[in-house]
Simulated assay, not measured.
Amino acid sequence: MSNKKSNYRKDAKSISVEVKEADELLAFLLKVMSNRSRNSVKSILARGQVTVDDHIEKQFNYNLKPGQRVTILKNKAAVKQDVLIGMKILYEDEHIIVINKEAGLLSIATESEKQQTALHQLMKYVKREDPDNRIFVVHRLDKDTSGVMMFAKSEQVKRKLQDNWNQTVKERIYVALVEGKVSKREGYITSWLRETKTHLMYSSQTPNDGLFAKTRYRVIQGNNEFSLLEVSLETGRKNQIRVHMQDLGHPVVGDKKYGSKKRNAIGRLGLHARTLTFLHPVTNKQISFKADIPASFLNKSK
């Protein structure tokens, strides 16, 4: 393997390598980290310390393609304590923290995963300064959705944000990579959303049969296979964009739960929270944060 700058980057916290030929992820990592045992490399994968392009990847047999970039975060015990896996802090003050979350990272704990979450990591991060510091969830992103996410540093700020969410948040813009060519360049979708006993959301056109949901979209770019849409939420319902893209006849890439029938071309869900604009809960000044559109979304929709 060549160590030219064009395909191999190394710093104090990570190793980043460009894929030159098709390979399975574990086999590729064993070559890159030839000084480590197979079990050690498998553990690094299982802990979520490996990203492919713009998402965390834990599958040993994930198929790599030439041109992708694999980044390996060094063993957590060997790096500075301020390393946050699967996220980047965009903004922080004494009241809030705004992050760019990668696809594959849970927002909060589940029964099967307690520690590898955005909340748990940020809690440890703020407690280093003061053991009494805490972090509070304001809103969530699905595990497989990337992008801008905000947390509060006090119960009071959390309540103020949540109680006045519709007035506080001025803009929530997502980008969605969807299947097929969307012929209508822009439009909006409305329905009433309901949830089944198995937690699946679905649309109803019967007035007041569920929670009203409205989604606006416009086509950024596309081809015959994929379209990249800018999606604005006028209401914030559970799985709203995913259900409405299914209603549009163009399900989100990789979204088997809501209508995707094709092979997942990007190895993740094609949904990214690009922009969050809101009034600061204390200063009342309007601030806005953006997370770049994932490269895989742009490449597939050219």
Rank of each mutant, 00 (worst) to 15 (best):
K181H: 13
Q121S: 02
F278M: 13
K58R: 14
L84R: 04
A12L: 14
Q221G: 06
D163V: 02
K257Q: 14
V157L: 03
R274L: 11
K257E: 05
S260P: 04
R268E: 09
R159G: 00
M1V: 11
Q162H: 04
L248F: 11
E225K: 15
S37F: 00
I173P: 01
I56P: 04
N299V: 14
K5G: 15
S204C: 05
E111Q: 14
K184E: 14
F28Q: 01
L228G: 10
K197V: 01
V253H: 08
K262A: 13
Y188W: 03
K31I: 08
L105K: 04
L106E: 01
R134M: 12
K101D: 07
K158M: 15
V175A: 01
K76W: 00
M123P: 00
D144I: 01
K65I: 05
I108C: 09
I266F: 06
F151V: 08
L105N: 05
D82T: 14
S14N: 09
T190Y: 11
D144Y: 11
S112G: 00
L90T: 03
I72V: 13
K114Q: 15
N284T: 07
P131C: 03
A109I: 06
K31S: 14
S107T: 15
W192L: 06
K238A: 01
T117M: 07
E179F: 02
Q68M: 08
V98A: 02
K302T: 04
V253A: 13
V282P: 06
K257N: 05
K181W: 07
E102T: 09
G222P: 02
V148R: 02
G249E: 11
L45S: 02
A103N: 09
V219K: 11
Y202C: 02
P251G: 10
E113H: 12
Q115I: 14
A291K: 07
L298Q: 11
G67L: 01
N100I: 03
S16K: 12
Q167I: 07
Q68K: 02
I15P: 02
K290V: 12
S146V: 05
L29W: 03
F212L: 12
I241L: 10
A77N: 15
N208W: 12
K127H: 10
K5W: 07
F136Y: 15
Q205S: 13
T117Y: 09
L298G: 01
K65E: 10
N299E: 13
E111L: 12
A77P: 00
G67A: 10
Q286A: 07
N166G: 14
S6C: 06
L90G: 00
M245Y: 09
W192G: 00
I56A: 04
R36C: 05
K74W: 09
I72R: 01
F278R: 07
K184V: 15
T110G: 02
G210K: 12
V19P: 04
K170W: 08
Q221R: 15
Q115R: 11
N35A: 14
L141D: 04
